[in-house]
Amino acid sequence: MLFQPVICIGTDVRTVFSGPSANALFKATKFGEVSLPNPILVHCKKSGKQFYAIIHLVTGSLIIDFEPVMPNETPKIDVGSLQSYKYAGKAIARLQSLPSGSVERLCDTMVQEVFELTGYELVMAYKFHDDEHGEVVAEITKRARTIPWVTLSCY
């Protein structure tokens, strides 16, 4: 049996999702920052199944990821998780907007973003050498080193 995708480029979401779900997707694409309303709970017309729609803007193209709501899961979009996703989405957008070619700048930015997202007192990025010893290539701290902290690896 050959797999036939339900949604292809150019598919009108109104043919796949219920009216309120399609409207929610249309409204979300009108936001200046498309990742802000993520995730959006949508209902499939044909199967009745629910999905979380997550909208991204990647190099000028609108991408929507659909993650199924598990059958034993009560679908909910709580304010805390929505806020966390917004912060993570903004961090990802900043990382994607960096010019290519500078691992140092990438590590500096990654350390800053993780620091802001987590609130940890210390975040470091290490570069590991062939002999498996590591050196700190980027770090940020609120004050003297105390826990909790997180380490990122840059290869």
Rank of each mutant, 00 (worst) to 15 (best):
D108L: 02
P39E: 11
L2G: 09
I54D: 15
G134L: 00
N23L: 04
S100H: 01
V13E: 15
F115P: 01
S18W: 01
G10S: 10
D12Q: 07
Q50I: 00
E104R: 00
S47H: 13
D78N: 08
L106F: 15
A138Y: 05
Y126W: 07
T146Q: 07
E113R: 05
H129L: 07
R14P: 07
P68Y: 13
T146Y: 11
P71M: 06
F31K: 04
A93M: 05
T146E: 11
K27S: 15
S84L: 08
S102N: 05
D108E: 14
L82G: 09
H43W: 12
T11R: 03
L57A: 12
A91T: 13
T109H: 02
L106Y: 15
G32I: 00
I54A: 08
C154E: 07
G89D: 04
L122W: 12
M70N: 12
R143L: 03
L62M: 05
Q4Y: 12
L25D: 13
M1A: 07
V111T: 14
I9D: 13
T141L: 04
P5N: 13
T11F: 08
I140H: 09
K46C: 10
L122E: 13
K86E: 14
I140Q: 10
V79Y: 14
G32K: 05
T74A: 06
A28D: 14
H56Q: 06
M1E: 15
E33G: 00
P99S: 06
S35H: 13
I140D: 14
L36S: 03
M1Q: 10
P148R: 03
A88G: 11
Q50G: 05
T15P: 04
E33H: 02
E116I: 04
S47G: 09
E73G: 00
A91H: 12
T29L: 11
A91E: 09
V58R: 13
G101Y: 02
K30Y: 14
E132A: 04
Y52H: 07
Q4P: 04
M110V: 06
A53Y: 12
N38I: 02
R143T: 12
L41W: 11
E67N: 03
E33V: 00
Q50F: 12
V150K: 13
A53N: 08
F128D: 08
P5D: 15
V42C: 08
M70G: 08
A22L: 13
T151H: 13
I7K: 06
H56M: 05
D130L: 01
T11Y: 13
L2Y: 15
M70H: 09
H129M: 06
S97I: 00
A125H: 08
L95S: 09
